Amino acid sequence: MRRERLSTRPSPDARHDFLMELRGEPLPGVRLTLRLVPDLLVPDPASVLAYLAEFAGFGEGLEALAVAVLDDVNNELVPRWVEVAVESDAPLPHRVVIEDRQPSWDNPRLMERLPPP
């Protein structure tokens, strides 16, 4: 299973909110940006690269890709907040952004500082 490729390590300090951003190409010509505010676990960047390689041949569209990554990250990491952006320029510019957060989490000051993906 592709989720098994996502390895984690303990957050250096779960008392504080911090933003992580990882980027990769799960498919040729498809760019993926994963932004998250970890809770107890942070992803190992090398494992995210191996995880994204599992999508080779994924032909269900950008929307399905974004939902699959969101579901996997939520299940393996349980972040406070997560955003998945997937985009491609061919055959025409197409971008999908999906996000989720833990029900009780909110940090408006951090969210205001987020640069556009």
Rank of each mutant, 00 (worst) to 15 (best):
P93Y: 06
V78H: 10
D72M: 01
L52R: 01
V78N: 08
V97L: 05
A68D: 15
S88Q: 08
D100T: 01
E54K: 12
N74H: 06
V86P: 02
A85E: 06
P91I: 11
D72L: 01
L70D: 13
A66Y: 06
F58H: 13
E54F: 13
E87F: 02
V78T: 07
R95I: 04
P93H: 09
L70F: 10
N74T: 05
N75C: 10
V78S: 11
E99N: 11
V96L: 02
H94N: 04
G61D: 03
D72R: 07
D72E: 05
E87L: 04
A85P: 02
E76A: 08
E60D: 13
V82I: 07
D100H: 01
G59H: 15
D89Q: 05
E54D: 15
D72T: 03
A90I: 00
R80F: 00
F58S: 09
A56P: 05
V96H: 07
E99H: 07
L92P: 04
L70V: 06
V97Q: 03
R95C: 07
V82C: 11
V97P: 09
A53W: 05
E83C: 15
H94R: 05
V96E: 07
L62V: 13
V96K: 02
S88R: 11
A53E: 15
D71Y: 10
V69M: 11
V96D: 14
R80M: 06
F58I: 13
A85M: 04
V67A: 12
V73D: 01
L92N: 04
